[in-house]
Amino acid sequence: MNLLTVSGSPHVHADQSVRKIMFGVIISLIPAMLVSFYFFGLSAIILTLTAVVSCALFEFLIQKYILGNVPTIGDGSAMLTGLLLAFNVPSNLPVWMIIVGSLVSIGIAKLSFGGLGKNPFNPALVGRVFLLISFPVDMTSWPLPQSFSTSLTDVVTGPTPLGIVKEGLKKGDALTDLMQQVPDYVNLLLGNMGGSVGEISALALIIGGLYLLFKRIISWHIPVAFIGSAFVFAAVLNFANPEAYVNPFFHLVTGGLMLGALYMATDMVTSPMTPAGMLVFGAGCGIITILIRVFGVYPEGVSFAILIMNAVVPLLNKAFKPRRFGV
């Protein structure tokens, strides 16, 4: 007797899987990774590897020994979280700190909610914000970029362009003078500035983002709404008072805005399900980012903005339903 297989329709499946999506995102992060390795050298490599390995390891250990599940590290989501966490911290962060951050990301932000797909907040950002609040000094002393260096100790640290502007304005310096101190736009685009490991090169991140769009891993709604709303809001401020508020283009190429808009906010698990919801979500992220950058205590606000908007995703999902056929 030959056993036939019986299953419900459909009987064919698109060539897609969670694993493919996760590794697609990891591949798209390669340009930004190479830029960071170039500017921050060996320390960035060590930090990134540590984060990836420790996230995968924590996921495996917790799932296997605490939750008693079948470990799912094969899907690549823990590795992606590790990679994004490393991209969001300064490259000279002590290695043990990134391990603590990984534990918070995987253990608290992801697995305590039930694992992949059930976490309300972006795990990498939770880990990052945890580190930022716990170790503010280490998390805000950024090494200045230099062409590939293997030195781990004598790095020169300095503020990020956003930090220069924020501190300067607080002291009452003129904006035009401050703009002299930050790198020019070409260097900002390429990533030749102080900042977290993966966020520095807007250009590399945009290349990766285009790859994601091309592969249809993300849709355009969140990045466009995020970047667009941040730009418009900053432009309005700048237009109202060019002396006090910086050029909107400056906001787009500095700090974690590109990384946030293309990779952190577009995290499928923690973003809305419908195009309309995504637009509102992205716009909220952009506006809160600029609010924090301009009026808040911190020079950078992308992480907080995304986490705040993560919290309203269930509401957005309720409020914005897809357009029904025949209604």
Binding site: T5, S7, H13, S77, L116, S219, M268, P322, R324
Partner: peptide
């Protein structure tokens, strides 16, 4: 053939919203 008749293993929903995007009736 036998090699193509089995479904892939089911894992957690990652809320990618593809099902919502492709639904011709605009459902979730």
């Amino acid at each position: 053939p036998a090699s193509a008749s089995k479904r892939m293993a089911e894992v957690s929903c990652i809320r990618c919203s593809r099902c919502t995007t492709v639904c011709p009736m605009g459902l979730e």
